[in-house]
Amino acid sequence: MKLKGPRAIPVQPAPQSLLPSSRYRRLRVAIVSDAIAGRNGLGTYYMDLIEHLRGHVGCIELLGPIADRDAQLERFSVPMPGDKTQRMVYPNRCELRRRLDDLRPNLVIVPTLGAFSYFALLYAREKRIPVAIAHHTNFDRLLSLYWPRVISKPLGWMLRKVNRWLITQAGMVVSLNSEAYQDAVSLGARNVRIMGTPVACDFLRHPHSHRNAPIRRVIFVGRLAAEKGVGEVLDAATIHSKIQFAIAGDGPGRDMVCDAAERLSNVSYLGWLSRDRVREEIDQNDVLVLPSAIEAFGTVALEALARRRYVLLRRECGIAKWPSLAAGLFHIESNETVADSLDRMLNMTSVDLERQAEPSWSAVHDFNHHTLRKWLSFLADAAIGEAPMQQSDAA
């Protein structure tokens, strides 16, 4: 069962519950983030969400640092510890306040720990605006990958204390999977909801190209960092010399990737890519591999499913905890390397590969609509402070 040519994914109309209503039209939402827009999963999550929701709410804007630096909003920055390709930014408080005043929000969402988030929280308290916290990152697991225990343990304890305080300031908390949900509850969150991840509109609307049969090309897209497992992808390239591997992204592992691209004829380093280029490169490949040890959701995996590509990842990735999407994923088991798992896929027929992947491909549109419905409901409840505890929709 091989795709015979470009195939347009139909753009489905918004379900009735997504159509504009007075409840949503009154919403004016400020999302204030310390993550640089578009530079990592968290930085793209809210850009994609806003793209979908802008037509359904009164106003929704993302305020925070951008890749090209906003000279008016950003006072100064320093390299992120452990990753000099990212920045910790201190805002111009007067400019941030001015932009918030212009927006006149009736809900402030804080998805990060940092100076932008802190000043947004102070602003919301002063103006008596409801605050919602987005709980994305398990700092204990992340820090242990970069520093020895003698450093990571006290630093993780400090960040957890800050996170606990931040969560207690919020009327509601959002998390991206069941593990983050439980972590938020353990930190003292009273009202937590689990959200899915939206798919960027371009990934849904553009026709996708056919895949190779058998598999010939594999791509990794993400931050080139220890927790993302890019080293395992390069090891797999060494073993599977007849398969072409493309690596897209930036981070502290860039030199390692560049060295491998010079040494191995089947490895190409694409650098950091715009979202349009990410879509184009995914379409040029057959398998997206995401061997992350820590991944709150894995937006790029969802994007690859939207492009009807095979997705190979670890069960720890947040997307694997959503039953409708997990059904068609290919897994790197705990006792396997990326090379081992890819070898299993290479030994499957094209018919068997597509039969396994089809349930996840078919679930993407419904999952996207479900995510948007949940977000609209969350925003409306959070803005008026009515938030009954809701359990997870994820496994």
Rank of each mutant, 00 (worst) to 15 (best):
N40R: 07
A246P: 00
A395H: 13
L63Y: 07
S241Y: 12
A394H: 06
Y181R: 09
Q284Y: 05
S350Y: 04
A35Y: 03
F139W: 15
P13I: 05
R23V: 11
I66P: 00
L273E: 00
R26W: 07
D250C: 00
Q244A: 14
K127P: 03
A132Y: 03
L159D: 06
A320Y: 03
T168P: 02
S117E: 04
I247C: 01
F330T: 02
P10Q: 06
L166F: 13
H240G: 06
F245Y: 15
E358P: 00
C201W: 06
R344C: 07
V110R: 03
R309S: 08
G196A: 05
M348P: 02
T349A: 07
M1N: 13
D68F: 09
V338R: 00
R141K: 14
D183Q: 14
A8G: 08
P15L: 06
M256Q: 15
S362Q: 13
L302P: 01
G271N: 05
E61A: 13
F119D: 11
K374I: 04
L346P: 02
G188F: 14
S175R: 02
A115T: 10
L62V: 03
Q244M: 12
G196L: 05
G38A: 07
G43Y: 01
F116M: 10
Y24K: 04
A115S: 14
R275F: 02
N368D: 13
G64I: 04
I294M: 07
E303L: 05
A306H: 03
D283P: 01
Q356A: 09
K161P: 04
R307N: 08
S360Y: 08
R164P: 02
W157H: 15
A180H: 06
W361I: 04
L155Q: 10
A301K: 00
R98H: 11
Y310R: 06
I36T: 14
L3W: 11
A180E: 09
L145G: 04
R275G: 01
H135V: 10
R97Y: 10
A380R: 08
S117M: 03
S377M: 09
A380H: 11
G251E: 00
E95R: 10
L121H: 07
G328Q: 08
A380P: 02
A170N: 06
I332C: 08
R23F: 10
Q169W: 09
T137Q: 10
S377D: 13
S265E: 15
R99E: 03
G55C: 06
G156P: 10
N191G: 08
Q356E: 12
C317V: 06
